[in-house]
Design a protein around this nucleic acid. Structure first.
Lengths: 194, 194
DNA sequence: CTTTTTTCTTAATCTACATCAAGTGCCGCC
DNA sequence: GGCGGCACTTGATGTAGATTAAGAAAAAAG
């Protein structure tokens, strides 16, 4: 069944009965996004959380100089949304784009709130999900303040080993906060050193 | 009553009956921390969330060069903890220190989990609290990647107007991610420009 | 397979911010 | 009320990483 991945994802933090699983699945909407197409663009009001089942998305902002800054990647088994916009229902700042042909399951904000009423365990699930994101975000903040680009790259490799082969270098450069040119040089120097 | 501030804080997101309020308050433990003393130090396992009722705390890490990096300030009406350690119950990386004589209400992790069982509305409360922290943390990440030190300082002034007069410059410098020397120079240049 | 587009590399130059150093002012403390 | 440390300033110099530019390699599109 196409929902296995997301049900396994839920089961990491809460236990659902077969009936509850079925209810949950009826609230989901499957969607395919072709490479280079967008799930959300900057200025949109974010109406859904997306759970990736295949492919890969990236969430990024564009600064006034026109430069991208990647806030997050979403490979299979990850959730992604413009949290600011989703929570406030104001126009967001995030662009969410497919790096390759991608499949997601969408859970609308409306359905999410219905779930909270109907199956309160979902409060717990999304609390834990958000807690984990917060810890990761804070760690990345600290890394940005205290580590060199090379050390941040090293951390990235350890934390996202599956993504590395698989992702254009410039996207990784943007995530760790350097230019593609500097990133390229840094990598060749790292090889030389070894 | 000494619990007014925290009950008002809760009421921003959930409604509690008088009875529930009373139960909640019995789970709290008041504590005073003198200026320069610590609520938590790096390597400790974080056992409590702290809600500040008076004074001000700072949460920071120390890098291998011995330099502080402020992750957050907690003036009155704010919550603070080492989220990584609190959630994982592993040794943490955060130091939480009083910038002046400070009073907090502590909610232990154990009591927090009892609350989730006993009054499920607290799942919701802490979910929303965590969501808001996540949005702020992500915004700060993006600011760190896309803005100059001067723009980050400007944002800081807008977001924490009460803290500015009140906080040693070097702490603000650390929060926005520059050295105290550079921060000092930057400020005098900003005055000159105006 | 060919063309077009995107990604990656390499090199020269530039800049925001760090580091080191020395001096000034100030506030808490005996 | 003096003094010892801490916060702030200012200047000289150093550096991680940015910018600009241009060509090579790889991948997507047709």
């Amino acid at each position: 069944m196409p929902f296995k991945l997301i049900l396994d994802n839920l089961s990491k933090h809460i236990h659902l009965t077969a009936g509850e699983q079925e209810i949950f699945c009826t609230y989901l909407q499957a969607k395919k996004i072709k490479r280079k197409q967008f799930l959300l663009t900057d200025g949109d009001i974010c109406k859904h959380s997306a759970f990736v089942t295949a492919g890969c998305l990236r969430g990024y902002t564009v600064d006034k100089g026109g430069i991208d800054h990647v806030l997050s990647f979403a490979p299979p088994d990850w959730w992604i949304a413009d949290m600011y916009s989703l929570l406030s229902q104001k126009p967001g700042i995030l662009n969410i784009e497919a790096l390759e042909d991608t499949e997601v399951l969408l859970l609308s904000k409306v359905n999410q709130e219905i779930l909270y009423q109907q199956i309160p365990k979902f409060e717990r699930f999304f609390r834990i999900l958000t807690e984990n994101s917060l810890v990761a975000s804070q760690q990345r903040l600290i890394d940005g303040l205290s580590l060199t680009a090379e050390e941040r790259y090293h951390n990235f490799c350890k934390r996202y080993p599956t993504l590395i082969d698989h992702l254009p270098q410039k996207q990784i450069a943007s995530y760790i906060g350097v230019t593609p040119e500097f990133f390229s040089r840094m990598r060749s120097e790292m090889v030389r050193k070894k």
